[in-house]
Nucleic acid binder design. Structure first.
Lengths: 242, 242
DNA sequence: AACCTTAGTGTCAAAAAAACACTATATTTG
DNA sequence: CAAATATAGTGTTTTTTTGACACTAAGGTT
């Protein structure tokens, strides 16, 4: 059988939470030529992998280059390799402008990641990378709308079965903040008392001897997420569902 | 950034159920030279993709070549691309013997699939392809043990949330056969009455005016799975969990 | 001091899950 | 042909989980 070589890239759907809404990190690849804007649109963050690099490491590297943070939650959720990936009039032009062959298919391994936006500062390095609210993302380049949509589905799925929401919060957080994450990602309102009943079962949620300060209302108890306890409890049981 | 081209293959973890245990389709790539066996070991079924082929189509093609059956349940569950994929002393030799470059990494998109073994006859086409019980699979070539293990996890996960078990049964089946599939794949015993209570809710499970014949006990009611009703009910609700 | 805002807490009803044992009907055997 | 064997099929009770629901507490602000 004939054997074709393909270019493989890793695309990261980086979700960020700012306390109010869910955002996604996008690259503005607006191209200007002699002061004139040729086109303007957005892509997910991504890059090629090195020849001898693990896929997971490539995704972590891309994330590190953008955020300067390591050990971030990352999960592979799919591969995309449609030959008709160029779904936007600009795509072909952009590939040519970047020295790529627009006729070679790009196989894209997709990861999603969660970050508390306040915990990091974006390292732009000349690229135009910004947070955009997930709800108001318009048309993206290539098949990136489809990838984003699958990423959201995978995120929701995962959030129901594993305590990944903590990655979107600062180290110390309140239960109301945690609840808001569930509400925004899952797109439903949750009952405060029922929510607290459930998370009371999670032994890896540790209350601190510390309260919120400087808020114009009753200060909330602060909690931390104990990863060690979680890792141990994982083997014992499967107790997380909202 | 430098751009490396990679060989992409699709690996299919084809699960088969024979009424008793869960099997997986493996290729025996025993190599003999001048009548002497050089080595003997097993791999998952897989192949390269064509240049302009959708990944899903490539997986379906591989499956069709082996089984002669189309429209089989297939699901992508991961990508594997460790540079250390050659984990067996034979792997390098085998790649050389098959005209492949053992130093170029193979990126492998993995699918799993479900088949009722009795419904098909394997089309060997000169290759040595057989069913092996999942429980007693030994060391496989490359990273195929890892892929198989992830496939099983994905299968269990999927079985809990979607009615895919029917793909492992003949068209007409009994509730006891269905229950056995759940028990064997999930690795737990299920209560007969509770199981039947749950599946009674599934409107796409249609009882026939037909019973088992030639069995030395009370003959069981036969059922069919109505895919159309299932597809409709999917949009209405999410009612499948065992 | 009154007000505003979010934190925090318990009960009851409904639904779902889990435990549990006997009768029915076909074939096979003695 | 009577008994044995093997699996089919069927309801009730208890326990657990879920979902609905409303008031007091404690800070800061006006």
């Amino acid at each position: 059988m004939a054997q074709f070589n393909q270019t493989i890239s890793v695309d990261c759907v980086i979700f960020g939470f700012d306390g109010e809404q869910l955002n996604v990190l996008l690259v503005d690849r607006t191209l200007t030529k002699e002061g004139q804007e040729i086109f303007s649109d957005l892509t997910l963050t991504g890059n090629h992998i090195y020849e001898d690099e693990e896929l997971d490491n490539a995704a972590a590297r891309i994330l590190f280059d953008l955020t300067g943070v390591k050990d971030i939650y990352l999960e592979q959720f799919g591969v995309f390799a449609s030959p008709e990936r160029l779904n936007h009039p600009n795509d072909r032009q952009w590939l040519l402008a970047n020295g790529r062959n627009p006729d070679s298919r790009i196989v894209s391994v997709a990861y999603f990641s969660l970050i508390a936006t306040k915990e990091i500062t974006l390292e732009w390095k000349g690229r135009n990378v910004k947070w955009y609210p997930v709800n108001s993302v318009g048309t993206l380049a290539f098949d990136h709308n489809q990838i984003l949509s699958k990423a959201l589905a995978a995120l929701r799925n995962k959030l129901r079965s594993a305590p990944i929401g903590f990655a979107l919060l600062p180290e110390k957080f309140t239960l109301s903040q945690l609840q808001k994450i569930y509400e925004i990602i899952l797109g439903t309102e949750l009952d405060k008392r029922n929510f607290r009943k459930k998370i009371a079962r999670m032994k890896y949620l540790i209350p601190l001897n510390e309260k919120q300060k400087g808020v114009a209302h009753k200060p909330a108890q602060l909690y931390v997420f104990d990863r060690d306890i979680y890792e141990k409890s994982k083997t014992e049981m499967f107790d997380f569902s909202i």
